[in-house]
């Protein structure tokens, strides 16, 4: 174990990368819960159809929600063809659109801490997947497309739980929800463009393959932090 830690920390570069990633995950914490009090206040004070407002809120939620972005980072980690990326992102987007809209309409309310803990687990799952753990441990590779879709469904429940908390007015609910969902997709695409550019540079100029394994260990640690943070919140509240 000690040898292993030494080995991980041997390269200065990977050490720096590792901590930059972890600090990034922690530093943006204040933004983690997307829609803020001010937005909540706005939503509660308004009723009727407000498409642009909800598109903006959806995009803001996604861009400032590092839990969703971390998962997507894991998903596109080894993808370099735009065609593949669009297939996976579509599977994810269709998944969370289904549960976001149906979850709000049927008021499926799952405890926000529990659903966020599962979202944290999805990051851990994807990091292990990228490390080849399932193939090595169980002798087969579980479908990555199916996993992306299923976790999309779960992330959508997280979004729905938040929308329900905001007590959106029933007046104009459906168009507003669809607008929010469109915003989520826009935010997701904007976030993905940034992630994709960074990974592409890394792939080109850095020692991508050498660092890939450690980067996913770091991603997994970030996922565990998120799981622990949410579970602690659940047991306290």
């Amino acid at each position: 174990m000690v040898d292993f830690i030494k080995q991980v920390f041997k390269r200065k570069n990977s050490f720096v990368f590792f901590w930059v990633l972890l600090l990034f995950l922690l530093a943006v914490d204040a933004l983690a819960h997307g829609v803020t009090d001010g937005d909540k206040g706005f939503i509660q004070a308004s009723s009727g159809r407000m498409l642009m407002a909800f598109i903006y809120l959806g995009a803001k939620h996604m861009i400032t929600g590092y839990d969703h972005l971390s998962f997507l980072f894991g998903v596109i980690f080894f993808l370099y063809r735009l065609k593949d990326i669009s297939i996976y992102v579509t599977l994810f987007a269709v998944g969370h659109s289904i549960t976001l809209i149906s979850g709000v309409l049927f008021e499926v309310s799952i405890n926000a801490y529990i659903i966020d803990a599962i979202i944290g687990f999805s990051i851990v799952y994807k990091a292990l997947d990228n490390m080849g753990a399932y193939e090595r441990w169980f002798g087969f590779q579980p479908s990555t497309k199916l996993a992306t879709h299923v976790f999309g469904l779960i992330h959508g429940f997280g979004l729905a739980t938040k929308i329900i908390e905001y007590q959106v007015s029933p007046d104009g609910l459906i168009p507003n929800l669809i607008a929010f969902n469109v915003g989520v997709e826009i935010g997701q695409i904007l976030g993905l463009i940034v992630i994709f550019i960074l990974i592409s540079y890394w792939r080109r100029f850095g020692n991508f393959i050498q660092h890939a394994y450690r980067a996913n260990v770091a991603l997994m640690a970030g996922g565990f932090v998120f799981v622990g943070y949410q579970l602690a919140g659940y047991f306290i509240s």
């Binding site: 174990m1 292993f4 830690i5 991980v8 972890l22 922690l26 914490d29 851990v124 990091a127 292990l128 490390m131 080849g132 753990a133 193939e135 090595r136 441990w137 394994y213 260990v217 770091a218 997994m220 640690a221 970030g222 996922g223 565990f224 932090v225 799981v227 622990g228 943070y229 602690a232």
Partner: peptide, 27 residues
């Protein structure tokens, strides 16, 4: 593929790091 033991060690390492961060800063 990385060996099963290496993967397990990495997972434990990730949990330990997460635990340290949680206990010392996040919680």
């Amino acid at each position: 593929l990385p060996s099963a033991v290496k993967l397990l060690k990495s997972t434990v390492l990730a949990i330990v790091i997460a635990g340290v961060i949680l206990v010392t800063t996040v919680l």
